[in-house]
Design a protein around this nucleic acid. Structure first.
Lengths: 214, 214
DNA sequence: ATCAGTATTTACAGAACTGTCAACAAGGTT
DNA sequence: AACCTTGTTGACAGTTCTGTAAATACTGAT
């Protein structure tokens, strides 16, 4: 009845991915039904299999698209933070944390990761570490790369944790609604003000004397 | 053929929960099939429904049991850290982080949380904050409770992040296998050595002067 | 020992979902 | 205009899973 205007493969795939992303954000990857995606995208469900091969193929494509978009947002935010003047560093750093995983999208990304979806995490993370190290060097020139590594890991883990459980933990700790952004700003400033020598622990001393005597 | 020795309801429930926990750790809550649980527990699947009402009831019971066990472990670890002597603080603090979410169990717990399972998070978190504040006061007596709140939030989020994505991020950053525990020790020492005044940011100053002129 | 209660099982009903197949339709190409 | 490629669809097959129902077996109490 309705006109079936044939879309180009790219258009069709994008429309399907848009619909799938909305659903995954709500119900998680395991709850995604291709019939629901088809309904939201306004088509019959075999069309989705035609474009993505299978339900799993759709989930992998979606995970990749979300990962690429997130990486692009994060790297752009870090770049602007690198170029920011000294008095604007804290705000720019906060911006980095804010754009890393905006809202429910990040939650869905982590969820998909748990469910085994593929994504090009490795290359992305190394790019992020490099940029972060540039950013740290704009604050203290003798910044240690190993410390940057660990700080990036800490921030990344905290961000992952926040998008997963941030809401619940915030409520459990009695934080007000707007304190979630406040927490990110607090974390950003602390990270910037951490002197590099404070990141060297006694463990590093032990670690710098490996016991290689065979 | 095999003797069907009738267990007490408690024994049966425990056996089922044990089997379910092993499976959830592997495949996540969405992938849990009560037939698989029954097979691992050595019984027929309707018996599980008889004891838990439904598949969802089983998942909720499991989430509660895991949450209670984790809370117990964490609070005990913090208590010993409170009583630890000064030179043993760092090691005790590391122990707290290590016992918080041991391995795959924590991953499953977060996964279940994402899938909407109920758990008594709120009461547990407040108890943990109180103990953590006691621990901080053994290091610096004038520790601010608000800072403890934020630190607990940071650590909790980082731990959640680690159990969820720690493996992948570690690999992406090129960390060796044993550096995962190393990261926790590093974080523990940093947390203990953070002076309280360094946790006060310019935001707190702004925040203490609210703009209420209407 | 008999009986009541319930833990346990076998068989089955019902629903939901993925993927297949054949047919149709739209859009560009010759 | 005829045609070919392919996006699109309706109907269907097959599988898998949850929950139900009735029968059975174990255990403790009287």
């Amino acid at each position: 009845m309705a006109k079936k205007t044939h879309k180009s493969p790219e258009q069709a795939r994008d429309a399907i991915l848009d619909a799938a992303e909305q659903i995954v954000v709500q119900v998680g990857p395991a709850g995604l039904r291709i019939s629901a995606v088809a309904k939201k995208a306004g088509m019959a469900h075999p069309n989705i299999i035609h474009h993505f091969g299978s339900r799993e193929g759709l989930l992998n494509s979606l995970a990749n698209r979300m990962g690429e978009r997130a990486t692009h947002r994060i790297t752009e935010a870090i770049k602007t933070a690198v170029d920011a003047p000294a008095q604007g560093k804290a705000a720019a750093m906060t911006q980095v944390l804010d754009t890393a995983y905006p809202g429910d999208e990040g939650r869905a990304a982590v969820w998909m990761h748990l469910s085994g979806a593929e994504s090009s995490l490795k290359e992305n993370m190394q790019q992020i570490v490099e940029l972060s190290h540039q950013l740290r060097k704009t604050v203290s020139e003798d910044a240690d790369l190993e410390h940057t590594n660990r700080l990036v890991m800490l921030v990344t883990l905290a961000l992952v944790g926040e998008v997963v459980s941030g809401q619940g933990i915030k409520e459990a700790l009695g934080f007000a609604e707007d304190n979630r952004a406040h927490f990110r700003a607090w974390l950003a400033e602390i990270l910037l003000n951490l002197p590099d020598d404070q990141l060297s622990t006694s463990l590093d001393i032990n670690h710098s004397i490996p016991q290689n005597h065979k």
